[in-house]
Design a protein around this nucleic acid. Structure first.
Lengths: 141, 141
DNA sequence: TTTACTGCAAAGGGTTTGCAACATG
DNA sequence: CATGTTGCAAACCCTTTGCAGTAAA
């Protein structure tokens, strides 16, 4: 895991520093995409500007993905290429929390095929899809 | 259409002013969710701050929906309740353009049922879903 | 030992807001 | 005519950036 990140960074002339390792660990510890404030709270030794900069670089080399919600802050998660764990998100429209969810393989396949067909008829090359479930989490329902 | 918006506004002690009518017309004229700069360009007589304020109120009363992408600006579209036109989005990861797309009714039904089941097993109440197709538009491919 | 990285503080930039004049119902 | 709305400019707040010192390879 950390080795994979190191490898990705190296191929871009970047170093796997202490701070970056800490950020990656914070992402790994969570069960859903996290905001920068959450990361800073999780690990008080990190400087805000460095976290912003590092997440940006980690995204650039393909180690993390940036998620946008209606929330104030952007959210980050480990890239699926690193986790081998294709997933979607449960977004609570009441408290804003975001957690991971997996669909059945069959449903994923059905959706994927249908979207490719749909893209073709719109003359649009479909590279992937983003599917969020919006509703109320257990705490808010 | 405009009557529906007026009705929604009225029930919230809001007025359907000239500026708001213009904003709604701009949304209606587009084939996908638009940014505030696009609205301002479309109708030069609008003041930026009023457009922000009005879109916020229109969203509050359920007349428009705010869309977030990786783009710099938020995007707005008429609410599905007004258009009777459930749809998703084609998002070009190259130029950032966003346009509407409709899936077959059957696929929508399949997805909806599967997501509700999935939500149940996560103890999450699913109110709706958001499905974007990410890839390259005809111009960028 | 070279060059990338860090942390601070200051700048950017999309969005929000205070206020006095104005328009709507 | 009472009250919601407008437009300007200033404030806000998340995010980015300049810079001098530090640490990775």
């Amino acid at each position: 895991m950390h080795d994979d990140v190191a490898e990705l960074l190296r191929s871009g002339d970047h170093r796997y520093t202490n701070g970056r390792r800490r950020v990656v660990s914070a992402l790994q510890a969570s069960d859903g995409p996290v905001t920068i404030p959450q990361i800073l709270e999780l690990d008080g030794s990190l400087a805000q500007s460095s976290v912003y900069r590092n997440l940006s670089i980690l995204e650039e080399v393909g180690a993390v993905s940036r998620i946008v919600t209606h929330d104030d802050h952007a959210r980050y998660e480990l890239a699926e290429a690193l986790t081998d764990h294709h997933h979607h998100h449960l977004i609570c429209s009441s408290c804003g929390s975001v957690s991971d969810v997996e669909l059945t393989e069959q449903l994923e396949r059905t959706i994927d095929e249908a979207l490719h067909r749909t893209g073709q008829s719109y003359n649009f090359r479909v590279d992937g899809h983003r599917l969020d479930l919006v509703g109320a989490c257990a705490d808010c329902a």
